[in-house]
């Protein structure tokens, strides 16, 4: 971790590999400053890791990176202990939060962090890049909450890119809050909803049997992407209702 006038730079690293005895080992589990990684009790072949925010953040000027690599045959589940809150910093600059996930052949990653809350006055760029192999299995949840209760949101820009075997299957960017391009809160984009979320699933069997597009809740659908992956998109008035929709979707799609 380095601290400068420009803010905190921190990179947490995580590597999971098949331990050869039917389980998953974590040869690399590197916390850094505000990004702390803790191994928790897993189940079966799966290792579990919790991302624990040792400090609140990211603040303006901070640049956080989390890198996770799941090697051939390994199974990893990553959650977080609490919501991440983007806050304004003393330096007034923008903050960056980059997540880089790589999943190899026959490996599985469940990346299910808690919400990202964009507090008033914050300015955060989140980028999540996922690289999968043809036979990887993958689940990712992403939830953005615009403002704490009763608060105007900060500026939040998030980009989510999924590549499978080198081919980009999803590239999606959403920018909200003061200073975002016009219309972000209007009838085409969020229409006043304060929570927006996605569930991204990739499985080799989706190549032959893609999910059927269908409605899951008033403002939630599941769709097959142009590749062996599915996306649940939802907007909700608040974080609680959003989570309920995404939990139900995950249960249905995992069944």
């Amino acid at each position: 971790m380095t601290t400068a006038l420009t803010g905190v730079r921190a990179t947490a690293r995580l590597v999971a590999r098949d331990d050869g005895r039917g389980g998953t080992a974590l040869p690399v589990l590197e916390s850094d400053g505000p990004l702390a990684l803790r191994r928790t009790r897993g189940s079966g072949a799966e290792a579990r890791v919790m991302l624990v925010g040792a400090m609140s953040g990211p603040l303006g000027g901070d640049h956080f990176t989390v890198r996770a690599e799941v090697q051939e045959g390994a199974r990893l589940h990553v959650g977080s202990a609490a919501a991440t809150i983007a806050l304004p910093g003393q330096t007034k600059g923008e903050a960056h939060y980059d997540v880089r996930l790589a999943v190899s052949e026959e490996a599985e990653l469940h990346w299910l962090p808690e919400q990202l809350i964009s507090a008033g006055g914050s300015d955060l760029y989140v980028t999540t890049r996922v690289d999968l192999a043809d036979t990887s299995r993958f689940v990712l949840r992403e939830e953005q909450v615009l403002g704490r209760v009763g608060e105007e949101p900060g500026r939040l820009s998030s980009r989510l890119v999924l590549r499978i075997a080198g081919r980009t299957v999803l590239d999606q960017e959403l920018t909200c809050g003061p200073g975002a391009p016009g219309g972000w809160d209007g009838p085409a984009v969020l229409a006043g909803h304060r929570a927006v979320g996605q569930l991204l699933l990739a499985r080799p069997e989706f190549a032959e049997h893609p999910v059927a597009a269908r409605q899951l809740a008033e403002h939630a659908v599941v769709v097959p992407l142009a590749g062996p992956a599915a996306l649940v998109s939802a907007v909700s008035p608040d974080a609680l209702r959003l989570r309920r929709v995404l939990d139900e979707a995950l249960a249905v799609l995992s069944a």
């Binding site: 590239d171 009838p187 085409a188 984009v189 927006v196 659908v221 907007v235």
Partner: peptide, 9 residues
């Protein structure tokens, strides 16, 4: 890659 969730949904 700017997206509009409600347009898609």
């Amino acid at each position: 890659a700017a997206s509009a969730p409600l347009l898609e949904i």
